[in-house]
Amino acid sequence: MTEFFVIFVGAVLVNNFVLVQFLGLCPFMGVSNKLETAIGMAAATTFVLTLASICSYMVHAWILAPLGLTFLKTISFILVIAAVVQFAKMFIEKTSPLLYRVLGVFLPLITTNCAVLGVALQNTNKVHTFSESALYGFAAAVGFSLVLILFSAMRERLAAADVPTHFRGAAIGMITAGLMSLAFMGFAGLV
């Protein structure tokens, strides 16, 4: 039980994928202009990350490792992730056409979200078991969602601020993300 707690807190706060490991920055900057879109993106990414983490574990442990093909893991993980994203895309298109339109190009772009590939690769590096991989994927997604949603609420406020012209938009967003990353360093040593 303790080790699951350590994995969870570690992935959500201490080694947050966005603010500490700097993975998945493109959706973090791209979809954080409005809170409602960010919540939709967070849900979609959580779905994809957890599923992709499980699928890539199965591919690695049951296909690649027994056949001695682990050098193919990166390319096969990309394939698995692309398939999961396609599935998520069809799922969202059917269940919420509005969210599908709002997310637009960022939905297929979850494929290239480096956090998703990062989780799959870290699972093999840290020799996680099946349940640990699933939890790690989910925790990474929770950390990503937490930061994305808080950041989007802040950006709605920044949009109204009297920011100097050259720093408007993505520039001040990047500075804010940097300051946040400083604050997240306070969690160092928790687990």
Partner: peptide, 21 residues
Amino acid sequence: WGNYPDAVAFAVLLMNFAAPF
């Protein structure tokens, strides 16, 4: 439980981040 002996600055910045939400 963290590395730093005092944490007011970190805690305040983290919650500044959450305040708009």
